[in-house]
Amino acid sequence: MKLHSVTLHHIRMTLKTPFANSLETVSDRELIIVEVRDFEGHIGFGEGVAFTSPWYTEETLKTSWHMLKDFMIPALKEQVLSHPSDVEYLLKGIRRNPMAKYAIEGAIWDLYAKRERISLAEALGGTASRIKAGVAVGASESETMLNEISKRIEEGYERIKVKIKPSQDLSLIKAIRETYPSIDLMADANSAYTLNDIERLKALDQYSLLMIEQPLAADDIVDHALLQKELATPICLDESIASYDDARRALNLNSCRIINIKPGRVGGLSVSKKIHDLCADQSIPVWCGGMLESGIGRAHNIALSSLPNFTIPGDVSASSRYWERDIILPEVTVENGSITVPDGYGIGFEINRQELERVTLTKETV
Rank of each mutant, 00 (worst) to 15 (best):
L120N: 00
L146V: 01
K92E: 15
K62S: 15
N97V: 04
D70L: 08
M67K: 12
P74A: 04
A121D: 08
P98S: 02
W109C: 03
S119T: 12
E116R: 15
T60R: 02
A100D: 08
G126S: 07
G138T: 01
K77M: 12
K132V: 05
Y89E: 12
I108W: 15
G134I: 06
T63V: 00
D70N: 13
K101C: 05
I73H: 07
K77E: 13
H83V: 09
I108M: 09
P74W: 01
T144R: 11
S119H: 11
V80K: 14
P84Y: 00
K69N: 08
S140Y: 12
L68E: 01
I108H: 13
A100V: 03
N147V: 06
Y112F: 12
V80Q: 14
K101N: 07
L90K: 15
I104W: 04
L120G: 02
K92S: 15
K114T: 07
R117I: 11
W109G: 06
M145V: 08
E88A: 10
V137H: 03
L146S: 04
M99F: 11
A100C: 10
G134R: 06
E116C: 15
W65Q: 07
R96H: 14
L120Y: 03
F71Q: 09
M67W: 09
K114M: 03
G93M: 07
H66S: 13
P98A: 00
D110N: 08
K101T: 00
L91E: 01
D70P: 03
L91A: 05
A113W: 09
L61F: 09
